[in-house]
């Protein structure tokens, strides 16, 4: 065992209050789940920033490739009918 192992990397997500989205905060190093949560708490919530934490092993995350963005996100580009502003509403209609 190497003496200067820096343990595994975990990405940390924090929910600022109940009902809010979990937002990426940063990364910690830890050898297991429990240590990952404790390190995430000590590193990213020293001022009550969170009510809940997710810690995810970095190698479990799959990320899209920015070089392929045009092709990857292309299916959404020509579907303006997914937007409410696409539709023509009759004159005088209210609360719609």
């Amino acid at each position: 065992m190497s003496a200067d192992t820096q343990l595994e990397k975990w990405e940390v997500f924090i929910q600022s209050k109940p009902g809010a989205n979990f937002v990426h905060a940063g990364c910690v190093h830890a050898s297991d789940k429990k240590m990952a949560l404790q390190n995430a708490r000590d590193t990213y919530t020293r001022r009550g920033e969170g009510t809940s934490i997710w810690a995810v092993p970095c190698d479990a995350i799959v990320a899209s490739n920015p070089d392929e963005n045009d092709m990857f996100f292309d299916p959404a580009n020509d579907k303006t009918y997914r937007m409410p502003t696409f539709y023509v509403m009759p004159e005088g209609a209210k609360a719609i």
Binding site: M1, A3, D4, T5, Q6, L7, A30, S31, D32, M35
Partner: peptide, 10 residues
């Protein structure tokens, strides 16, 4: 170093 080693061993 022993702390990191102990964590890995655990």
């Amino acid at each position: 170093a022993w702390v990191r080693e102990a964590a890995e061993a655990y």
